[in-house]
């Protein structure tokens, strides 16, 4: 009787805890930084399925994608969240850039139109996030205005941020430069594609939403 009562009470607390933990985790960043690749890695690890297609052509993700109730277990801790993968934020979109990837003109123009809408959507969703992973390409200059605008907006909204310096498997990767650019945030260097340093990423994720 006492054991049943104890289980009942602990179940109630567990449910309350899990509901509180079911937060909205957004993935933001410039185009081609590896946001969807990271979303796919998380979804593969904990749901056994992918979030969406990733590509070398910029603006592959042009609409918000979500996966609900992802349960991550790490060192006896558990975290449930809804993962929101957003289109890359850019200040300019030129369909001619897509032609370089041998895309037909009609398709390139359509992609550009959809990409502009995607940027608007991504910005609109900023307000609803509980925590955000800002994914940056560690081979590029981190001082771009888009990066600063995203992080500045999250800071102004008091949304916890974890900076992901992605593509550390590439020779040109410079994590130190990303760390120097955003000294007020924790920066984790990973390769979402190769799964490099993913354990450290999950560790930081728990710290982010604690």
């Amino acid at each position: 009787m006492i054991i049943k009562l104890r289980d009942f009470i602990s179940n109630i607390f567990l449910r309350m805890f899990q509901q509180r933990r079911s937060l909205k985790l957004g993935i933001y960043g410039p185009p081609n930084a590896g946001k969807t690749t990271l979303a796919n890695k998380i979804c593969q690890d904990w749901l056994g399925e992918e979030m969406g297609p990733a590509s070398k052509v910029p603006h592959e993700t042009r609409a918000i994608q979500t996966k609900e109730k992802i349960k991550v277990k790490h060192k006896r801790k558990e975290l449930t969240f809804n993962l929101i993968d957003t289109p890359g934020i850019a200040t300019k979109i030129d369909y001619e850039d897509f032609l370089k990837y041998k895309m037909p003109q009609k398709e390139a123009k359509k992609r550009a139109r959809e990409a502009t809408k995607g940027v608007i959507e991504a910005i609109k969703w900023l307000d609803g996030m509980d925590a955000v992973l800002v994914v940056l390409d560690s081979t590029l200059n981190p001082y771009s205005q888009v990066n600063l605008t995203i992080i500045g907006n999250l800071a102004a909204r008091d949304i916890p941020v974890l900076v992901i310096a992605n593509k550390i498997d590439l020779k040109k990767a410079k994590i130190k430069k990303v760390e120097n650019a955003f000294p007020q945030y924790e920066v984790v260097g990973i390769s979402a594609e190769k799964g490099q340093n993913i354990e450290e990423f999950y560790e930081s994720l728990f710290k982010l939403v604690k």
Binding site: T91, K92, I93, T116, K117, V119, K124
Partner: peptide, 19 residues
Amino acid sequence: IQRTMESVSKDFKGIELCT
């Protein structure tokens, strides 16, 4: 950025911004 995206057309590709 949002308004820029709404204005993107054949002749206007967007902006470059720096502070």
